[in-house]
Design a binder for these strands. Structure first.
Length: 269
DNA sequence: ATGGCTGATTATATCAGA
């Protein structure tokens, strides 16, 4: 049997939090770590520090100050690709393939736009961008590029699609990340592509599941007003390989933490 | 009580996050 463990983590500045990345990799040893919000240019990415930890294969798509995604891996990465959804010049996607036995598994790492404050696309261009991004992503998931491939979509989707993906469904219905227009779009992509929502695959629908807790709570753990913004979806072809998931809640309590925690999926081939 | 915070920037206030 071959085991593959993949983690997604919105790191909120990879340079600032490099010590946390090192601790996480040492203790959890995923094969592949997908990062979002790296917040640095490619030339500023801490390549050598990560390589020293045994993760020698690194694909990055960065930009100055904001956004930015990366895939770091212990196993070779093939066919690295970066897509520019919505033609904004944003670094919000990077893809690479890993080989398991005789199968090529395609990984797509996403940082979907947050969408700003107002859930009204006519007055808020950031929310309009988020909705357009979802529409483009939907089209792309139906394209030939994905047809018939073993695929894993991961990342910070910035949407908590289901009632128990937020601390209060009622209070958040008008809050960007949980409004019906965006959760409907995400659920349509999920359904149309026959994707497996790996976190929910292992967790009953009525059980609360969060991957993000705001910095603004006086005591994040006590308030526990979380949202499930980070996701791992697999193609149906990988359904039988899904073994377990892990949401590393304790990472939210680390010193100078990201507001997102690492989310991992283990697959057995 | 969703913003009370956090991070990056040719900074000392502004933008972005969500």
């Amino acid at each position: 049997m071959v085991r593959l463990k993949i983690t997604t983590w919105n790191i909120n500045s990879v340079r600032l939090r490099m010590p946390l990345v090192a601790n996480f990799l040492a203790a959890n040893a995923p094969d592949v770590l997908c990062l979002q919000e790296t917040k640095c240019r490619d030339a500023e990415f801490p390549l050598s520090e990560i390589r020293k930890l045994g993760y020698e294969h690194i694909a990055i798509n960065g930009q100055k100050g904001y956004h930015g995604v990366a895939i770091v891996s212990r196993v070779p990465l093939e066919d690295v690709d970066r897509k520019g959804f919505c033609d904004m010049g944003d670094a919000r996607h990077i893809a690479a393939s890993v080989r398991v036995n005789d199968r090529s598994i395609r990984l797509h790492n996403f940082y979907i736009p947050a969408g700003g404050d107002e859930a009204k696309p006519e007055i808020n261009p950031k929310f309009a961008h988020k909705l357009s991004f979802l529409d483009e992503m939907h089209e792309w998931t139906r394209s030939d590029e994905l047809a018939g491939r073993d695929t894993i979509l991961v990342g910070d989707f910035n949407i908590a699609p289901y009632e128990h993906d937020v601390w209060s469904h009622k209070s958040l219905l008008s809050v960007v990340s949980h409004t019906p227009v965006e959760t409907d779009k995400l659920k349509l992509i999920l359904k149309d592509g026959d994707w497996v929502d790996a976190l929910r695959h292992f967790t009953p629908a009525d059980e609360k599941l969060y991957t993000w807790w705001s910095y603004r709570a006086a005591d994040w753990a006590k308030a526990n007003k979380g949202r499930r913004l980070d996701h791992i979806w697999t193609s149906a072809s990988l359904g039988s390989t899904l073994s377990s998931i892990d949401i590393l809640r304790e990472a939210r309590g680390w010193e100078r933490p990201s507001d997102h925690v690492p989310v991992s999926l283990t697959l057995d081939f």
